[in-house]
Design a binder for these strands. Structure first.
Length: 277
DNA sequence: GCCTGGCTTCACCCTGGTTT
DNA sequence: AAACCAGGGTGAAGCCAGGC
C-alpha cells in the first residue's frame, strides 16, 4: 500500500507518473488463453523453491537468514579461496592432498567394500597405520558402532555409497537412497548426521561437508540455523541447499592448479573455515 | 506460572592403545 | 591376559531464556 498525498507539487507528479505507468501497462496488455494461464502457473509454481531460497527460506525451518546475511555463504570465489587458505589448523594444501588421494581410491576401486581396511578407515575418519591425516575433515574415532561396521566391512555402508555418483550434482533422491541404505548398517542405532556426512564429504567433497562437533557451532551460526536437533532432512535442506546456492560454489573451476584443487573439494573445505578446537 | 525451543551436560557405545 | 583409559558421536535428561 502506497499513500501519496499532501499539498506539494512533488506528490502530484509522482501520482501522475504512477497513473500513466499503469495506463501504459494496460495498453501493452493482451488477453491470454486458459491454456497459457495454466502454463504460466506451472512455471510459477516450479520457480517457487528458488524464490523461497532467495528469500532465505531453506528446508522447513522458520529461520529466515538470507545467503547475503552470512559472511561465508555470500562470498565470491576469490574471497572464499582466501578464507580456506587462512586455515590455522591443518593447511589447505595438505587437505587437498588427502582429498586427491581419496578421489584416486574411489576411481581405482569399484566399491568401498573392495578397498583394503586402512584405506576404508582413512575415508571413514578412523585411526589407521596407512594415513596419519585420517582425522581431518572430521574425526569419527568415538563412534563405536560405526567403527565396528567399518572394521567388519559392513556391506550396507558400501552399498549406500554406491548410490552417490562420482560426477555430476548429487540429487536429493540419490541422497535419500544413500541415507536409507546407510541406516541398514546400524541395527543397534547410534547413527547420525556426523558419520553419514563424513562418508559423503569424502566421496563428494565438492558437494558435501562433514558436520561434526568441531565445526557445527561455527557453521550453524554463520548459516543462521539452530545446531541442536540436526537430522538427515535438515542437513540436506538447510545446509547442502544453501551451499549449492552460494556464489563461490557456482563459480567457474579456476585454471590455477592450487585453486582448482580447493574448488574440487569446496564444500568439504568449509571445515577449514569453521573448525574450532 | 506454564510451555516451548534451544543449548549444555552426561552416560553409553565400541575400538585400540597402554598399563598392570 | 586382563584391566584401564582416551576418544568422540549419539541420545536422553537437565537447564535456561523468552513468549504468552
Amino acid at each position: 500500500m502506497l499513500l501519496i498525498g499532501g499539498a506539494g507539487n512533488d506528490s502530484t507528479s509522482v501520482r501522475d507518473e504512477i497513473v500513466s505507468l499503469i495506463a501504459r501497462y494496460w495498453e501493452m496488455a493482451k488477453p491470454i488463453k486458459k491454456s497459457e494461464a495454466a502454463a504460466y502457473r506451472e512455471v510459477w509454481s516450479r520457480k517457487q523453491p528458488a524464490l523461497r531460497r532467495l528469500a532465505g527460506q531453506y528446508g522447513s525451518s522458520n529461520t529466515e537468514k538470507p545467503l547475503t546475511a552470512s559472511s561465508v555463504m555470500s562470498m565470491a570465489w576469490d574471497r572464499y579461496f582466501n578464507a580456506v587458505k587462512a586455515d590455522q589448523h591443518h593447511g589447505f594444501e595438505n587437505r587437498c592432498e588427502l582429498l586427491a588421494a581419496v578421489a584416486c581410491a574411489f576411481a581405482k576401486h569399484r566399491t568401498f567394500a573392495s578397498m583394503p581396511l586402512p584405506l576404508r578407515k582413512t575415508i571413514a575418519g578412523l585411526p589407521n597405520v596407512h594415513e596419519s591425516r585420517w582425522g581431518w575433515f572430521g574425526s569419527m574415532r568415538g563412534a563405536g558402532y560405526y567403527h565396528q561396521a567399518v572394521n567388519e566391512n559392513n556391506k550396507h555402508l558400501s552399498k549406500a555409497l554406491d548410490e552417490i555418483p562420482l560426477r555430476g550434482t548429487v540429487t536429493r533422491s540419490e541422497y535419500e537412497k544413500y541415507i536409507a541404505e546407510f541406516l541398514n548398517a546400524f541395527p543397534n542405532g547410534r547413527h547420525g548426521v556426523g558419520i553419514a556426512s563424513r562418508l559423503l564429504a569424502l566421496k563428494r567433497p565438492d558437494q558435501f561437508v562433514c558436520l561434526d562437533s568441531k565445526n557445527q557451532r561455527g557453521l550453524c551460526r554463520d548459516f543462521g540455523i539452530v545446531q541442536s536437533g540436526m537430522n538427515y532432512d535438515r542437513y540436506w535442506g538447510e545446509i547442502i541447499e544453501r551451499i549449492t546456492d552460494a556464489p563461490w560454489w557456482n563459480s567457474m573451476r579456476p585454471k590455477n592448479a592450487k585453486e582448482a584443487a580447493v574448488w574440487d573439494g569446496r564444500a568439504a573445505m568449509l571445515d577449514a573455515i569453521f573448525y574450532e578446537e
